[in-house]
């Protein structure tokens, strides 16, 4: 554990809770892509199946349980409890376009040809692109609420901070995980455009709007 990874994890947890709190307090899932949230739930379930057979630390276990439960709760709120407020008409990204390539990539790039390793690789690739339905939705509606922007910023920062963590780990322990690093870089690049809008608009007190 180093400071970059800790900050990354804090940012990740923050993102998850910002989203849950926003939906819960406003009693509305407007502007949130249920499809992205389903993809994230698949990501956590596929990656954290090792909860049952490998113990790394109490910290890891608690975080894994937290991500699985929070993402399931988010999906429940969007599709069941506040279904009436969910903006399904604008949430039209075809998730098979990310699910199938992630699965194919997992079969090509993995650390061993076992079910759990393939699931792990799949989850890493899927995580990199899981936000696309949400970004697509923001582009389609042309704007995002400030809380949604904060959520996206925290979620994007998490993988960016992980990149710093990987650089640090490479130099201090020689640790290098090519699959996670490549996917993490792609993931961070996908947020770059959003980061720019966030800094130039939301932080200046304006609403995030995407020009056509």
């Amino acid at each position: 554990m180093n400071l970059f990874r800790l900050m990354g994890d804090v940012s990740h947890v923050l993102a998850v809770f910002i989203l849950l709190a926003k939906i819960w307090r406003t009693r509305s899932a407007a502007g949130i892509s249920g499809r992205s949230q389903i993809l994230f739930t698949i990501v956590y379930l596929a990656r954290y199946m090792d909860l049952f057979f490998s113990f790394i630390s109490l910290y890891n276990t608690v975080m894994k349980l937290l991500f699985i439960s929070a993402s399931c709760a988010t999906v429940y709120l969007i599709y069941f409890k506040f279904r009436a407020t969910y903006d399904g008409n604008h949430d039209t990204f075809r998730i098979e376009f990310v699910l199938v390539p992630s699965l194919l990539l997992a079969f090509i790039f993995h650390y061993s040809m076992s079910f759990f390793e393939l699931a792990w690789s799949f989850s890493i690739f899927l995580e990199a692109v899981a936000i696309l339905p949400q970004l697509f939705m923001v582009t389609k509606t042309g704007e995002a609420e400030n809380i949604t922007s904060h959520y996206l910023f925290a979620l994007g920062s998490y993988r960016a901070l992980y990149i710093l963590n990987w650089i640090y780990r490479y130099y201090t322990e020689g640790h290098f995980d090519p699959i996670a690093v490549c996917a993490g870089i792609v993931q961070t690049i996908l947020y770059c455009d959003f980061f720019y809008l966030y800094v130039t608009k939301v932080l200046q007190g304006r609403k995030l709007q995407v020009l056509p």
Binding site: R5, I56, F67
Partner: peptide, 10 residues
């Protein structure tokens, strides 16, 4: 063994 050693991140 290396699986847990490798996937120690979230």
């Amino acid at each position: 063994f290396w699986r847990t050693a490798l996937h120690d991140e979230l």
